[in-house]
């Protein structure tokens, strides 16, 4: 009885309840998009985008523009730009992402340094402040989750075709370029609304780990698309609770839980499953 009460103790706090809702939604949202990130070999793009969005967040803070508007526009432009560079092979994709995103990240730090209010804002954006999320933040995550869920469900086959076989999808009349832009926009907006929960530095892990874990469990795309958000949401739920009891950073604990789930699955799943994840050689 006492243990149960102890476990439920954090739920007495409204800030923890908000944090739980935000983190669980963020985990599911990142889990859905993580499937595309992992299977399309976009892990580095996800990592880079989170850094690019940081620049926009810093600029909007300094210019007193609404965070979602400023960082959102910045993130979407960066996402589309990165997508174009990666697809058109203007220069090496990795180099292009490195240049665009680290420049944006460095610009963000410089802006915050130069115009004060720096330290607290930087830490909040870098490592997340899930216990400080408001209902507005939750509404934003919920709105993006519903939109992403609806888009992925409604255009499921087109997304699958363009991800698995873009060449034949193009021949078959699918608008592969438009699908890729849509994916980058969804990814940018997802990073934007979830970065307060998990932080810029750790968001790419939440995009990659649940999807990579789901890949070990199933050989079916549709099942992977169901499992990955479930794993993401459960890891966030468990990570949040653990962080309270262990008195550790919520973002870091969530990622550690996700990494532990991945490792356990890797060890228990058998050789075939390990080969599946080994085939995701861009991770």
């Amino acid at each position: 009885m006492t243990i149960a009460l102890d476990l439920l103790a954090p739920y007495d706090f409204a800030f923890f309840q908000r944090g739980m809702v935000a983190a669980t939604l963020a985990g599911a949202l990142c889990g859905v998009l993580g499937v595309f990130v992992v299977l399309r070999g976009m892990s580095y793009i996800g990592h880079g985008l989170s850094h690019a969005v940081f620049g926009g967040a810093a600029a909007s803070a300094v210019m007193s523009i609404n965070f979602f508007v400023g960082a959102g526009i910045w993130g979407i432009i960066s996402g589309v730009l990165i997508g174009r560079i990666a697809r058109r092979k203007i220069i090496g994709a990795d180099a292009a992402i490195g240049i665009v995103t680290t420049a944006s990240f460095a610009g963000g730090i410089a802006l915050l340094n130069r115009y004060g209010q720096a330290r607290k804002s930087i830490e909040a954006v870098l490592f997340g402040s899930v216990l400080g999320v408001s209902w507005v933040d939750i509404a934003a995550i919920l709105a993006v989750s519903l939109a992403v869920g609806a888009i992925v469900l409604f255009a499921y086959r087109a997304f699958l075709f363009a991800t698995f076989d873009p060449q034949v999808a193009t021949v078959s009349g699918e608008r592969v370029a438009a699908i890729e832009v849509m994916l980058m926009v969804m990814l940018s907006v997802t990073i934007l609304v979830t970065m307060r929960v998990i932080g810029t530095l750790l968001i790419s892990a939440l995009l990659v780990i649940p999807a990579a874990t789901a890949r070990m469990i199933t050989n079916s795309f549709s099942r992977m698309l169901m499992l990955s958000p479930l794993i993401g949401a459960l890891c966030c739920l468990a990570g949040m609770n653990l962080s309270y009891h262990l008195d550790t950073s919520a973002g870091a604990t969530i990622i550690l839980v996700a990494a532990a789930v991945f490792t356990a699955t890797y060890l228990l799943a058998g050789r075939r499953a390990r080969l599946r994840v080994a085939s995701l050689n861009h991770l």
């Binding site: 499921y156 699958l160 075709f161 698995f164 076989d165």
Partner: peptide, 21 residues
């Protein structure tokens, strides 16, 4: 060949006029 996809899913993906999985 490592993409998580079954034979049925390979065929169904071409029918993009129907959107649902």
């Amino acid at each position: 060949w490592n993409f998580p996809i079954t034979v049925g899913e390979v065929l169904a993906m071409t029918r993009t006029r129907r959107h649902w999985p």
